[in-house]
């Protein structure tokens, strides 16, 4: 088997926190990401979904090495970048770029758009002297901004335009992988569609592989080839888009999909079966023994508390971490998705 473009091998990120006891101060460990395996082929788009606090953004920051993992390997074309220092990491920084969730705070308000987009060009020596401005203008045009606006500052743009600046910035390094951490969730719905269309066209034109993080399952289905579902720092199900949407096997995936708003009800289509999960996800400081989902799972048995289910292939290319994995009786996906 050839080495994929990106492979996470049993990656973990444990944050140590200081307990708040005054005398008996206990140091605790937040297991934000705990043993994640993922692969990404060239030009492929992998969706990463899960509820707040499940470790999606931490995974994004591990892939881009803004964080150093506490365990595991991060392989880019076979090279482990998990513990490289800043200098040796630099060539890989070029290959993996990040689009941030918040287009307001992630752009330096004191730098012009030209400087924001151009820094990567200079840092990685991507243009010869004098060619920087032309390339910046090309990039601005590529993302649908007026190329003459390179002298402006971020605060002179709207949210959607600022996200386009962020995308131009990410593209400047000519990356092979772009990690998009909820790139549209901070934008208005009408602008979301524009930015999604831009990402879609960039993907097909430039052949960049995407790791696309979102909690909007509709957007993910539209955009991604493969999808990984995370729960409490683990990947619980991972597979090709159609297989996962049509026949989700992990109870959590089923619950997530059934939570997507059902537009058909308005037109008189009988409502589909909906799974409601009780309670909040457990704390990642002290996750449940065995299967992490068992505390909210309606299928849970004794074995779930003692044995941690491994991620096993249950359908073609579809891996599930559940002792009782099975597709649902009826489709859970709302027709509008």
């Amino acid at each position: 088997m050839t080495e994929p473009l990106l492979r996470l091998d049993n990656v973990a990120m444990h944050f140590r926190t200081k307990g708040d006891g005054f005398l008996a101060r206990r140091n605790q460990t937040v297991q934000a990401v705990d043993g994640v395996d993922l692969t990404l082929a060239a030009g492929e788009t992998l969706g990463l979904v899960g509820e707040s606090g499940c470790g999606k953004s931490t995974t994004a920051r591990l892939i881009t090495r803004l964080l150093e993992p506490t365990a595991g390997r991060i392989l880019v074309e076979g090279d482990d970048i998990a513990h490289l220092d800043e200098r040796r990491l630099r060539p890989y920084r070029k290959e993996i770029q990040l689009i941030f969730q918040d287009p307001y705070s992630s752009l330096n308000p004191r730098h012009t758009v030209g400087a924001i987009v151009g820094t990567a060009l200079r840092t990685h020596n991507l243009v010869e002297k004098g060619g920087e401005l032309r390339r910046v203008q090309e990039l601005l045009e590529l993302v649908g901004l007026n190329p003459e606006h390179y002298k402006r500052y971020p605060h002179e743009f709207s949210g959607g335009q600022r996200q386009r600046i962020g995308i131009a910035r990410a593209l400047a390094a000519r990356p092979k992988i772009i990690v998009a951490d909820e790139p549209v969730s901070a934008l208005d719905v009408s602008i979301q569609a524009q930015v999604m269309n831009l990402l879609e066209s960039l993907r097909s034109e430039l052949g960049i592989a995407f790791v696309f993080i979102a909690h909007d399952l509709g957007v993910v289905r539209h955009f991604c080839d493969r999808i990984a579902v995370m729960y409490l720092g683990r990947v619980v199900e991972e597979g090709p888009r159609d297989g996962l949407y049509d026949a989700p096997q992990h109870p959590y995936t089923q619950a997530l999909l059934s939570a997507v708003p059902d537009v058909g009800v308005v037109r008189g289509v009988p409502p589909r079966q909906r799974i409601r999960l009780a309670g909040d996800p457990p704390s990642p400081i002290d996750p449940p023994s065995g299967c992490r989902f068992r505390t909210r799972c309606w299928k849970a048995q004794d074995i779930c508390a003692t044995q941690d289910p491994a991620l096993i292939e249950r359908a073609p290319a579809q891996q599930v971490a559940c002792h009782f994995a099975a597709p649902p009786a009826a489709s859970l996906v709302a027709e509008a998705v």
Binding site: T64, L66, E86, L89, R90, R93, K94, Q97, L98, F100, D102, S105, S106, L107, N108, P109, R110, H111, T119, A120, T123, H124, G166, R169, A173
Partner: peptide, 26 residues
């Protein structure tokens, strides 16, 4: 701690430039 400093890091520029050009200026 600002987000744009994280952006600067992700660009791969040197830590010194991140700290002085992006952090200290602000």
């Amino acid at each position: 701690g600002q987000d744009f400093v994280r952006t600067a890091r992700s660009k791969g520029i040197s830590e010194r430039r991140v700290v002085y050009r992006h952090g200290l200026r602000a």
